[in-house]
Nucleic acid binder design. Structure first.
Length: 965
RNA sequence: GGGCGAGUGGUGUAAUUGGUAAACACGCCAGUCUUAGGAACUGGUGGCGCAAGCCGUGAGGGUUCAAGUCCCUCCUCGCCCACCA
């Protein structure tokens, strides 16, 4: 053994590990099981992305550590191989996607193996394998049986470029997630999965899983649960209007009702309107606009009144006008709303635009600091400006500026330059200073300018923290050393709305006045208030708080309490070739007939042309031999369903298949599922938290209800990793030419270096920019480990240096041993928290120390063991060179010795008034008194405290001493 | 507009959760080795200052013996969602 030759070593061990099957998970082993999972990759033609190994190494480290801790670990891998890129490639080249997929998975497999992941390759799955998708189809049939898969004519999101329907989740800002083309709305018959039936549970059960808080939050937001009331407005025409609201307490403030242009019964309403022609025209145009969903168009709300139609408020019998407006969504709630402009910002905007009445019915509680008031609209209020200046140089500029003409109308009330004097509040100091400097203080100008009322106003003065903040605009001007501002600068929308926010944290006296002003503005209808409060103008409910009033009013009008969700049913069909065929037969007599289970899988036939059709049918529709079948029920002529499933289908249950991948009788045997599920730890990309994770939780719950899986949740714990960006922090992309090929890195630096580098480059959950320049550091570290290994080997071969009794090296340095045990502790803990970067840094420190001093074989081996999950090849090589026969990855994770972690002598810092002046050494069991005395009399400190009175001495155990004089 | 998160050396970042800011690594500088270049190793490397020392975690303020960390105001950036009644 001489040179560190990564190529030789890595190849050798990868082959041996595979041959010995050391990473194979054993079904039903008596050991405790541990199921760690990473998202299986989509095998694209570009090969493995440099980001893949990040997630995989992270979970590999955890899996390896678990094995060493004695668990029976399942760490599987497979291919999520159905999908558009492969299909598009097939269209372009005419190659069979099966062949393309085979080629791609071969590449991916080779690449993954070259990095030395401890996957159990014997359990590899592939979603495009008929033996796999047979069960995807089978699960679909169960959905169908339970009525959760259904066909419906829906307005779907249609991508004109990919020529396929998209789920809401696949539409990003109105564009196709894959190709960025603006999405159109098309009415089509589609297969749907009723995920909304599970919305409540998908939301609630998040309480019981260990997901990162952000992940839970975004799932919750996506599900979008909100509790409210559904009730009807009677009208003077033949049809009532059903609405949904979460703010029934504002019912008396309803001044109009709005229907969505896409409301299902819009036709009946418009024919009865006096201005029918106009309304129909509006509805047509609005629909058009919505269908384009072009987000570059301004989002101003538009609408038209249905002349002659009146809705009757069930609370007080008042008649209010009925409108059609494009800000009301057809597919949320009932497609119609009660509009309360005084208490809803959108209604407010609309009412202002069309001159509809605004009626306040909720009084904000302006003394309640916890008032959840959100935001208001433009209003007017006296402007006060408060300034603190620390820099005396800027003072002159400010004073000049204040004296300028432009500023005359809006004199600041106060500003502060030198700081607060004893016994003076900031306000007082400011008053004094401005008076001294400008003489302006006694002048009180009141100018009304628009501003945006903010919640802080209502919360204002409870917590009197007398901070006075610089008005940003002035501050900027001062910083730029200007003495004038132009008309434009002053009157830009920006400076008013964003910057002229009057200070709210000033004093009790001011805020009270402000509050009165706000109240006046509010009553004058200058802004809307959407928080809770006390009811007014609401008949017998006056004086009641919002929450109680809600309950009472529901009772009174007989509304139905209802929970709605933003989550929509899942559009499950795609008019594409490369997906699982939906196993259904359309019979003219029997209707939709499921393919009998014994006939599964419905194989995806070979076609000549993969091009999707403009009519929106899958290329499968052209294969008459495949399409035309006998109806399983009546044996008559029938046709196969030609839609395929989206690629989320196969990935919704793949983790179940790993437990029993070759089972031909079921998607997995119950015994296997019982042993292995749930997944103990699942790591994946952030982008999948609202799609894949939610979908698979839905499938899992469904299977749980059928008693086919033993747990109600699939994943016990979910974490996510950050992306790897290109050099300089931009996205890695072909067009930018900054894509890193993992093969190259493995070739020149080795798999261990790549693994160490990817784990060391930054916090695991955060995005980090790739830097080829920096990799060398990780390589140097491994070489250092190697050098130390060679030294240790020399010891082994010269027994003269060893104690015959226990084989420890004679010259062993006790501080290295201590460091080793500290490092074992730190690495063990860091791995659990996925703080791989700091774990590696402590391994680096230890390696450096070991190189400097002597280390025993025994201790060096412990070091190798904690290094092994990170750099498995080099650790294994050195481990065996030291005479071990069994793989290091099957050895027991080292324990640290508690007694070796404690230091007898600690270095602590001595501060005087918070500044470090000296360092002293103290014994671990010295008393506080002794330590304090030592600190006070230490050199370095004396000159600072000489002749001063010591007020206080603070001792922080094992850290520092602060002497206050 | 809403939600989540983040601002620390030339760079990636660390900081025992309020206790010596910059650990570890890249880069850079110097030295050793080398015909040379490179590699490797050793040392140095926040700013100002000859020095003692002072300043320093996006800006300003507050609380504290002590603030990167807590509180308030503001600015900037990233991600996700976006008329969800």
């Amino acid at each position: 053994m001489k040179e560190y030759d990564h190529k030789k070593i890595e190849k050798k061990w990868q082959t041996l590990w595979e041959k010995n099957g050391i990473y194979h998970a054993k079904d039903f082993s008596k050991k405790a099981k541990y199921y760690s999972l990473v998202e299986f990759p989509y095998p694209s033609g570009a090969g493995l992305h440099i980001g893949h190994p990040r997630s995989y190494t992270g979970m590999d480290i955890i899996s390896r550590k678990r094995r060493m801790q004695g668990y029976n670990v399942l760490y599987p891998i497979g291919w999520d191989a159905f999908g558009l890129p492969t299909e598009n490639y097939a269209i372009k080249t005419g190659k069979d996607p099966r062949i393309v997929t085979k080629k791609n998975t071969d590449t991916f497999r080779r690449q993954l193996k070259s990095i030395g992941f401890s996957f159990d390759w014997s359990r590899e799955v592939n979603t495009t394998d008929p033996k796999y998708y047979k069960w995807t189809q089978w699960i679909f049939l169960q959905f169908l049986k339970k009525g959760l898969a259904y066909k419906a004519k829906v307005n779907i999101n249609w991508c004109p470029k990919d020529k396929t329907g998209l789920a809401n989740e696949e539409v990003i800002a109105g564009c196709c997630e894959r190709c960025g083309t603006p999405v159109e709305k098309r009415e089509k018959e589609q297969w749907m999965l009723a995920i909304t039936k599970y919305a409540e549970r998908l939301d609630k059960d998040l309480d019981d899983v260990d997901y990162l808080p952000q992940i839970k939050q975004s799932q919750r937001n996506w599900i979008g649960k909100s509790e409210g009331v559904e009730f009807e407005f009677k009208t003077n025409i033949s049809r009532n209007i059903k609405v949904f609201t979460t703010r029934i307490d504002t019912l008396f403030g309803v001044t109009y009702v709005v229907l969505s242009p896409e409301h299902s019964n819009i036709g009946e309403f418009l024919v009865q309107a006096r201005n029918m022609a106009e309304v129909s025209k509006y509805v047509r145009e609005a629909k058009e606009k919505i269908s384009k969903k072009d987000l570059t168009i301004d989002k101003e709300k538009t609408g038209i009144e249905l002349k002659g139609t009146k809705a009757i408020n069930p609370a007080n019998g008042e008649e209010v006008p009925v409108w059609v407006g494009d800000y009301v969504l057809a597919d949320y709630g009932t497609g119609a709303i009660m509009a309360v402009p005084a208490h809803d910002e959108r209604d407010f905007e609309f009412a202002k635009k069309y001159g509809i009445e605004i009626k306040q019915v909720v009084m904000p509680d302006i003394t309640d600091s916890k008032n959840p008031h959100r935001e208001g609209k433009e209003s007017t209020i006296r402007n006060t400006v408060h300034i603190i200046l620390r820099n005396p140089k800027k003072k002159e500029i400010l004073i000049q500026f204040l004296k300028g003409e432009k500023w005359k109308g809006i004199n600041p009330q106060s500003f502060l330059i030198g700081g607060v004097e004893k016994g003076e509040s900031n306000m007082e100091a400011a008053s004094r200073e401005i008076k001294e400097e400008t003489g302006y203080f006694n002048l009180k100008f009141i100018e009304e300018i628009p501003f945006k009322v903010q919640s802080k106003f209502f919360a204002a003065h409870k917590d009197v923290n007398r901070t006075i903040t610089v008005n940003t605009l002035i501050f900027n001007l001062i910083n730029e050393e200007k003495t004038e501002i132009t008309e434009d600068e002053y009157f830009t929308k920006d400076s008013h709305e964003m910057k002229w926010i009057p200070e709210n944290k000033i004093s009790e006296t001011l805020t009270t006045e402000d509050q009165q002003m706000i109240w006046k503005c509010y009553q004058a209808g200058k802004f809307s208030y959407s928080g809770a409060g006390i009811l007014m103008n609401s008949g017998k409910w006056n004086g009641m708080d919002s929450e109680t009033a809600k309950k009472e009013i529901i009772k009174f009008i007989g509304g139905k309490e209802k929970t709605t969700f933003k989550l929509r049913d899942w559009v499950f069909s795609r008019q594409r070739y490369w997906g699982e065929p939906i196993p259904v037969i359309n019979c003219p007599d029997c209707g939709l007939v499921p393919v009998p289970e014994k006939d599964l899988p419905v194989l995806l036939p070979k076609v000549k042309n993969y091009q999707p059709t403009d009519s929106g049918e899958s290329p499968l529709a052209n294969i008459s031999k495949w399409v035309n079948v006998k109806c399983p029920k009546c044996k008559g002529q029938a046709k196969r369903e030609t839609d395929t499933m989206p690629n989320w289908a196969g990935s919704s249950w793949y983790y179940l298949r790993y437990t029993n991948p070759k089972n031909a009788k079921a998607f997995a045997d119950k015994k296997n599922l019982k042993y292995w599920t749930p997944v103990d730890w699942y790591n994946g990309g952030n982008e999948h938290t609202t799609l894949h994770v939610l979908y698979s939780r839905f499938w899992h719950k469904f299977l749980y209800d059928l008693k086919l899986v033993p747990t109600s949740e699939p994943y016990k714990k979910r974490t996510s990793h950050g992306m790897i960006l290109g050099e300089g922090g931009v996205k890695m992309s072909k067009s930018l030419g900054n894509v890193i090929n993992p093969d190259e890195i493995v070739k020149t630096y080795g798999a261990d270096t790549l693994r160490i580098y990817e784990m060391f480059m930054g916090p695991f959950s955060q995005s980090v920019a790739w830097s080829t320049e920096s990799i060398i550091g990780s390589r140097r570290f491994i070489e250092k480990v190697w050098r130390v290994g060679l030294e240790v080997l020399k010891q082994k071969n010269s027994s003269a240096l060893l104690h015959p009794s226990d084989g420890t090296f004679r010259l062993q340095n006790s501080s290295v041993v201590k460091l080793l045990h500290k490092t074992i502790k730190k690495v063990s803990e860091d791995i659990e928290e996925m703080r791989f970067n700091t774990a590696i840094s402590s391994l680096m420190i230890l390696a450096t120390e070991m190189e400097k001093s002597e280390v025993s074989i025994k201790d060096y081996k412990k070091f190798l063991q904690i290094l092994a999950p990170f750099a498995p090849h080099v650790a294994e090589e050195l481990w065996t060179a030291l005479g071990e026969k069994k793989s290091i990855h099957l050895s027991a994770w080292p324990k640290y010795d508690e007694s070796l972690i404690k230091d007898e002598e600690i270095k602590i810092a001595v501060q005087v008034n918070g500044k470090v002046r000296a360092e002293i050494m103290i014994g671990a069991d010295e008393s506080e008194e002794e330590i304090k005395n030592k600190a006070i009399s230490s050199e370095g400190v004396l000159k600072y405290i000489e002749g001063k009175e010591i007020k206080k001495v603070i001792y922080v155990k094992g850290r520092l001493i602060n002497i206050v004089i």
